[in-house]
Design a binder for these strands. Structure first.
Lengths: 337, 337
DNA sequence: ATTATCTACTAAACCTGTTTAGCATTACCA
DNA sequence: TGGTAATGCTAAACAGGTTTAGTAGATAAT
């Protein structure tokens, strides 16, 4: 194991001061009036021996790490995995690396993760916030860290965020079902105080009200296992034989719903019509294909990074916050009926 | 932004040396003969003011970071996302954090990522290696870093790895198709020199040979887009009307194959029987459900972490390497035919 | 001729911990 | 009573960079 070169080794080899080497490597040669000739000599030598500054030492002194902390709800969920992947690529293009973790929507875990990120001196945060995390996020912002939220936001916290138009999305989807003649449209969602879930619920309720239809809302606890969820859904189907359409508030619920409906031997969309929030290969390829509300995954990632980069590159902290709301697309796959 | 406390602040507040504080916080009080009374006083005070040592400074001095670098092929792929998620949880339980990135099977990108991980002083590496990365991984091992590979291994590199019994899996799956009376069984795979792909091919070939059937192998370039893949598959179906069964070498190929078959209006398994490597919700819920080779995802993650922890906790570097091969399960979903 | 300014660098402090080497005391033993 | 050992703690070096403050010598201005 050949010993790693340090800046002192470089300086000694060239008989100059490590200060000079540091200035040159950080592009401050001109400003510090280092002669072009020496700059060339140093860069040449550094390249020749393959010297790389120790970034820990660098971070320790500068307080910067070129690392972004990404906290998603669950990296094994397709929606988050795809966004995480694109964020990773975009960050990389901007010279940043990503450290990520799954919050599991667990407040305590998220707290610890934020503490760990701070500890590792990450430069900025991208977070899908769980409940009751307002204070921790406010602290981050107060301490000057750029924070961008996505998928949902925290009404009490002034920060940048990127979300989709949840209310209109479910309103529109519900309206679509109503227009197709459905009367008993159920909405299955998580019992959540998170903005995205509340808005999705409101969109559904608004459409039902407008058409003077009776809402039928089922709220499932977030930590319900897949097994329990299946039981719940099966139960629901048995007790709600008159329901002729279901709107699911996210892809996981939609998936479990599909399984239950399949087990119950019902036909889609003959016996029961379905729409799921979040599109998914499963919904596309399922037979018959399932209509879904597709979120603009790439756009979400693009905007998240854009907002974060703006803050990271700002010389003076920007007071005003940017809120970006993107449109979804209702992908109709049961038009034949 | 209240200034963060440093160990010097603690020492000054208590009128003792920072050395003493450091010893106490690192559990070396006894060894260093610090009085129980002082230990108590320091711990009490540290807790009271909420002091946390700066881990960058710590890492800089000790060379340890308690961070594991995880390089998967593509985090947006369900198989890798699920394993990554579990590895993350298990590492967390063992006091380690994960930094991960997707390699995209791109050698150059992987090289840069390994360099970045080294740079951040990660303590150990978990990698799904792309082609031609042997030298970089050997360097890591030579320099004393624990490395565990999974999903595939590098025959020329002596290291720990966790894989599944690919050859038997495809052999068994092919045999299942043969037993069901299929004669023209095609195998669609990536043109890859990676061990897992080679073994899957060999398993298929072995079964076909044993039954004196003619192999029909299509190799697709790894970087083919979904669009191109669909065209390829559609083309394949048109030119191979006699094919009555297809074995796909991984979930992505299986997914694209399903789409193409659906577009071609063929019935599964009536017109054509399918088996995909990697199980998937899609395959389970597709109508009719698709038979698949399920990898033991949790077991893979468990063993990867187990091997890595053994190396990380070893006081003397272990010479012998451990190779773990796990069984897959053929999940039969078209038994009615 | 003297002072100011510029050029081209550098010594030393700093970031925040860990680790090595060592220094007063007090206790113990012959 | 003098020498050794144990106790309890600390100063300083170190990890590897960045940044501040400054210096020696050349040139320009007064």
């Amino acid at each position: 194991m050949k010993k790693k070169l340090s800046i002192v080794d470089i300086a000694n080899s060239l008989n100059i001061s490590k200060t000079t080497v540091s200035f040159i490597l950080n592009g401050r040669a001109q400003e510090k009036r280092i002669s072009d000739e020496l700059v060339k000599r140093v860069l040449q030598y550094v390249k020749e021996v393959g010297y790389k500054p120790n970034s820990l030492a660098k971070s320790l002194r500068t307080g910067k790490s070129n690392i972004i902390g990404l906290l998603v709800q669950d990296i094994s969920n397709h929606f988050f995995a795809t966004i995480a992947r694109r964020i990773e690529d975009l960050a990389y293009q901007n010279g940043y690396k990503i450290i990520y973790s799954s919050t599991d929507n667990d407040t305590q875990k998220t707290r610890e993760l934020i503490a760990m990120f701070r500890d590792r001196h990450v430069d900025g945060y991208i977070i899908t916030p769980p409940d009751n995390i307002e204070e921790d996020i406010s602290d981050l912002i107060k301490d000057g860290f750029p924070v961008v939220l996505f998928d949902r936001y925290l009404p009490k916290v002034a920060t940048d965020y990127v979300v989709v138009d949840n209310l209109f999305s479910t309103f529109n989807a519900t309206q679509y079902l109503i227009d197709k003649g459905h009367k008993n449209i159920a909405f299955i969602t998580y019992s959540s105080i998170q903005t995205q879930m509340i808005e999705r619920l409101e969109g559904y309720e608004k459409a039902m009200h407008q058409s003077k239809l009776k809402p039928n809302i089922t709220e499932v606890d977030f930590h319900t296992t897949v097994q329990e969820m299946l039981k719940l859904m099966t139960n629901f189907l048995e007790k709600n034989k008159d329901v002729d359409a279901i709107l699911f508030a996210n892809n996981h619920l939609g998936k479990c719903g599909l399984k239950a409906i399949r087990k119950a031997g019902k036909n889609i969309p003959g016996d029961i019509a379905l729409i799921a929030f979040d599109d998914y290969e499963l919904f596309e390829l399922y037979t018959p294909a399932v209509t879904a509300i597709a979120q603009p995954i790439d756009e979400i990632a693009d905007n998240v990074i854009k907002l974060l980069m703006e803050r990271l590159n700002a010389t003076v902290p920007e007071e005003k916050n940017q809120h970006i709301t993107l449109a979804t697309e209702l992908i109709i796959r049961d038009s034949s009926n």
